[in-house]
Lab assay of single mutants.
Amino acid sequence: TYTYKLTDEEASRRAEDEWRNRGYDVRVRNNNGTWEVEVR
């Protein structure tokens, strides 16, 4: 499981799409203004 911490929502969406396209399960959540993109 990888977790990315990003401050930019758009960057988190791009990361989400990119990993999803590669067949990974992705979750995005906002934690106090930081976007966490979790990849498994």
Rank of each mutant, 00 (worst) to 15 (best):
N32E: 10
E9R: 07
T1A: 11
R40K: 11
R40W: 14
W35Q: 01
W19Y: 06
R29H: 13
V26A: 04
T3L: 12
D25A: 09
R29W: 13
E16R: 08
E36S: 05
R40H: 09
W35T: 02
V28C: 08
V28W: 03
T3R: 08
A11Y: 05
E36C: 07
V39S: 00
Y24H: 04
S12Q: 04
R22L: 12
N21I: 09
L6R: 02
E9M: 07
T1K: 10
A15T: 12
Y24Q: 02
V37F: 04
R13A: 06
R40T: 12
R29D: 06
R40Y: 13
D8I: 04
R27Y: 13
R40M: 12
A11I: 04
E9P: 06
R20F: 04
E16F: 12
G23P: 00
N31Y: 10
T7N: 13
R13S: 05
V37T: 02
G33W: 01
T3C: 13
V28P: 00
R40S: 14
E18K: 11
V26K: 01
S12C: 14
R40P: 03
E36N: 03
V39G: 00
D17K: 15
R29I: 14
R13W: 06
Y2C: 15
E18M: 14
V39Y: 02
D25Y: 09
V28Q: 01
E38Q: 09
D25F: 09
Y4G: 02
N30W: 14
R27F: 14
N31E: 10
V28N: 03
E9W: 09
N21L: 12
E36A: 03
W35M: 02
E9I: 07
V26F: 01
D8V: 03
Y24A: 04
V26L: 00
E38N: 05
D17Y: 13
R20H: 05
R14K: 12
R14N: 08
N31S: 08
A11L: 07
W19L: 07
V26T: 04
V37G: 00
R29V: 14
G23F: 02
Y24N: 02
N32V: 03
W35L: 03
K5L: 14
V26P: 02
V39N: 00
W19S: 01
T1Y: 13
N32H: 09
Y4A: 03
N30E: 14
R40I: 12
E18N: 08
T34R: 07
D25N: 10
R13I: 07
Y4H: 05
N31H: 10
S12H: 03
T34K: 07
R27Q: 14
R14L: 09
A15P: 02
V28M: 05
V39L: 06
R40F: 14
N30M: 10
R29G: 06
W19T: 01
T7H: 13
R27K: 14
R14D: 06
A15Y: 11
D17F: 13
W35I: 04
Y24T: 02
N21Y: 07
Y4L: 12
T34V: 15
W35S: 00
E16L: 11
E16D: 03
R20N: 05
T1S: 12
K5E: 10
E16V: 14
T1F: 13
E10F: 08
V37I: 13
T7E: 14
D8C: 08
R27I: 15
V26N: 01
T3E: 04
E9S: 05
R13L: 09
K5S: 12
Y24K: 02
N21W: 05
E16T: 09
E38L: 10
A11E: 12
Y2E: 06
V26I: 04
K5G: 06
A11P: 02
R20D: 02
E38K: 04
V39T: 01
W19I: 02
R20L: 08
T34F: 12
R22D: 04
A11D: 09
S12Y: 07
E10I: 10
R13P: 01
D17V: 15
T34H: 10
G23M: 00
Y4I: 13
G23H: 03
N31F: 11
N31Q: 08
E16A: 15
V39A: 01
R29Q: 11
E16M: 12
E18L: 14
N32I: 02
E18S: 09
